[in-house]
Structures are given as structure tokens and as C-alpha cells.
Design a protein around this nucleic acid. Sequence first.
DNA 1: ATCGTTGTACGATGGTCAACGTACCACCGC
DNA 2: GCGGTGGTACGTTGACCATCGTACAACGAT
Lengths: 104, 104
Amino acid sequence: MRTLEHPDLSSIQLDAVLAALADPVRRAIVLQLAHGHSDQACIAFDLPVSKSTATHHFRVLREAGIIEQRYSGTAIHNALRRADLDSRFPGLLDAVIAAGLNAV
Amino acid sequence: MRTLEHPDLSSIQLDAVLAALADPVRRAIVLQLAHGHSDQACIAFDLPVSKSTATHHFRVLREAGIIEQRYSGTAIHNALRRADLDSRFPGLLDAVIAAGLNAV
DNA sequence: ATCGTTGTACGATGGTCAACGTACCACCGC
DNA sequence: GCGGTGGTACGTTGACCATCGTACAACGAT
């Protein structure tokens, strides 16, 4: 089974998290995840970029510790690491999601 | 009297705010401002960059709507736009400051 | 075994941006 | 006036990154 590398809780860096969230495409992914999209494959997200670019963004989010990705067949199950982020940077994710919902 | 342009409350963009906060030098500025540095001139901040680079970072923060800059003689009075940010993106600034304090 | 689905690797390209030095401007005090 | 201090403008450089197409790998279903 293929596995994907994730930073563990203690090595999630604020720098990486903020840099990841600074991109609108990645925020769109986070918003859709927060909105109940969590079982979908990457390809099911509504993103204005090509497949290879989407892969890149999912990877950045995963390596920043914002999402968890697990293979489920050929597809990938994506989930927000809400509890981890809330424990490490309390309020940050909620603030971004709330702000994003207003904006969109 | 020289004046500096600031976005008004309604035109503060999440995109710009997150992009501004993604840089460690700019987060250092925000942290020092949140820590009571608010009356100092730009040059009084403890930053690991040259004067011209510091100017650049202060400008990015101002244009993102994160700080307010007002001339006071030749020097500039810097202040966090805490109330504006809290009203537009509740919790965001606090989360970044709290996370930054842990990290530093 | 073969095909379609899903995602990745790779290389290229164009744009953005942080950093710097230098020259300069604006104001204050003397 | 004239120097000094605080900030800015400008041009440059190097790095990083978002984007893409194409080719490919892994898996499921038939």
C-alpha cells in the first residue's frame, strides 16, 4: 500500500501553515473540506487549475500539516487535520474558514 | 504633511492579510507591535534586514491593512489595526500572535 | 490481461518577491 | 542656512513558486 508522509503534530510550523493558506486555490480546498467535502477524491474538488497543479497544492497542504491524505484504492481520501491544528495554533483555522466563507 | 495610503476597513482582503503574515520578518514586526512597541519608529524595531528591506515590509503590512502608519516629524508612528482586523477577520490576528509567541 | 480512473514525476516557463546598495527626500534641531 | 536622522525610490539580483503538458505508475473492474 502506498503511504504519504505527514508531519507529526509537533513539527507543524506556523510558517508553512500560513504560507500554505496564503494561496487562494489552497484556501478553496480547505473551505471545501470544511464544508463536508471530506470524502471526495482530489479530482472531485472544484478548482480552477489543472490536475497536476491540483496535485501540487494538495501536497503543499499535506506537507504543511493542514490536511491528511490516505489512499483508498486509486483515489485519495482527504481530511482536514482540525484537531491537530486547533491544538497547535488555536483559533487560526477557524478564523481562516470563517473569513473565507464571508469572502466567497 | 505627507500622508500614507491605507485600505479602509471594507477593502481589507484576506488574501493580502495572509500573504503579508506569511513572511517571518513581517510577523516579527506584528509581534513587536503587539508587544508594546507601538510608539517606536520603524528603525527601532529589531529586524534582521536592511533599512530599505524594512521599509518594504512595513509598506506591505500597511497596504494589507494590518498596520497604520502616520508621520510624526521625520519618524513614523506604527500601530496595529487590531480593531479593524478583529472586526473583519475575527480571531485571525489573535491566533497568529499567540502562535508566534509560542514559536519565539 | 486490458482498460479506465486517479494521482504523481518531470521539466519548462513566467511571474512574483525578498533582499540589497545607493542615491535621494523630508523634517527637526542647532 | 546646515547637518543629522528617519524613510523612500529605484534598479538589480537571485530565489521561489504557480502553472502547465506530457508521460507514467498504481489500482479496480470487467
